[in-house]
C-alpha cells in the first residue's frame, strides 16, 4: 500500500484525523523511505520559516506603525494632546528610489476637485483656493478640532526651502487629502488623493477621515528636509506668512 505525497504532507501539517494519524505513524516508523520523505517535508518547512521568521523580530518601520497609531488617535476623537509625536512617522524611513509624486484622483473625485472652490488651476499647477487656502494660511494644527471640515496634518520645511503642509478636506462621504507648498502668495498642491470615509453603521454618526493616504504620506516624506515643525515653529512660520525661512530651526 502506498502513501501519497498529499497524505504525508497532511501528516506533517497536523491535518490528519486521529485514526489515520495513528495508523500512518506506525507505517512511517516501519519504513525508511516514508521516514525520509517525512524528514524532507519537515526540513523544507523549517528552512522556509528560518528564512522568513527574522521579519518578526525586526523593528517595524514607523510609516506602518504610524498608520495604525494615527487611526487609533484620530478615531478617539479630538484632543491634540493625545496625538503621537509627529516626528515618529518620519524617523527611520528607508525610502525606495523613484517615489511617485503626483496627483491621484478617481473620476468622481476629479469632478469634486473641479467643482470645489478649494482646488483651483493655477497656470500649469494646481493650487489651493477658498476655505482651503485660508485654512492653510491661517490655522495652526494645534488649534483645530476633529470636527473641522478641513484638518491640518504636519507642517514642515521642504528640501526646496518652501513651507509645506498636509491637509484633509472633507466633502460628505469622501475627503481630499493632500500636501500644499507655499509658493509666493499661493499654496501649490503637490499631492492630492481621495480618502474614503468609513460609514458608521450603528447610530448614523460619520467618522472623520483619518490617516493620510499613501501617496500624500510619501510626498511629504520625500519632500521633507528635516523634522516637521513643532507647535512653536508652526506658529512662527504662520506669523511670518509662510515666507521661506532664511534659517531653519
Amino acid at each position: 500500500m502506498t502513501v501519497t505525497d498529499e497524505e504525508l504532507m497532511a501528516y506533517v501539517d497536523g491535518e490528519l484525523d486521529a485514526a489515520r494519524l495513528e495508523s500512518l505513524r506506525l507505517e512511517i516508523a516501519a519504513s525508511a523511505d516514508l521516514s525520509r520523505r517525512v524528514a524532507e517535508q519537515r526540513e523544507l518547512r523549517d528552512r522556509l520559516r528560518r528564512a522568513f521568521n527574522p521579519a518578526l523580530d525586526e523593528p517595524v518601520p514607523a510609516r506602518l506603525t504610524e498608520l495604525t497609531a494615527r487611526a487609533r488617535v484620530v478615531e478617539l476623537g479630538s484632543s491634540a494632546r493625545h496625538r503621537p509625536p509627529r516626528v515618529a512617522w518620519l524617523s527611520g524611513l528607508a525610502l525606495a528610489a523613484g517615489i511617485v509624486l503626483g496627483i491621484a484622483l478617481g473620476p468622481a473625485l476629479l469632478q469634486l476637485a473641479r467643482e470645489s472652490p478649494e482646488i483651483v488651476a493655477s497656470g500649469a499647477d494646481v493650487a489651493a483656493g477658498g476655505a482651503l487656502a485660508d485654512t492653510l494660511s491661517q490655522r495652526l494644527a494645534s488649534e483645530q478640532s476633529a470636527s473641522d471640515p478641513i484638518r491640518l496634518g504636519v507642517s514642515f520645511v521642504a528640501k526646496s526651502g518652501e513651507y509645506c503642509r498636509t491637509f484633509i478636506s472633507q466633502h460628505g462621504d469622501v475627503a481630499l487629502a493632500g500636501m500644499a507648498c507655499r509658493q509666493g502668495a499661493t499654496w501649490r498642491i503637490d499631492a492630492l488623493q481621495s480618502v474614503s470615509i468609513v460609514p458608521e453603521v450603528s447610530n448614523g454618526y460619520r467618522q472623520a477621515a483619518t490617516s493620510l493616504p499613501p501617496l500624500v504620506l510619501r510626498a511629504a516624506e520625500d519632500s521633507m528636509a528635516g523634522d516637521p515643525l513643532d507647535a512653536v515653529g508652526e506658529a512662527a512660520a504662520r506669523d511670518q506668512d509662510w515666507t521661506t525661512p532664511a534659517v531653519t530651526r
Partner: peptide, 24 residues
C-alpha cells in the same frame, strides 16, 4: 463605537510583524 475602532487600529498594529513576514 469609537472604542471599537480605536481598538481596531491597535489590534492591526500588533499584527504588523506577521503581515510583513507574509508580504515578504
Amino acid at each position: 463605537m469609537n472604542d471599537r475602532v480605536a481598538n481596531f487600529g491597535e489590534q492591526v498594529g500588533t499584527l504588523l510583524p506577521r503581515l510583513r513576514r507574509f508580504a515578504r
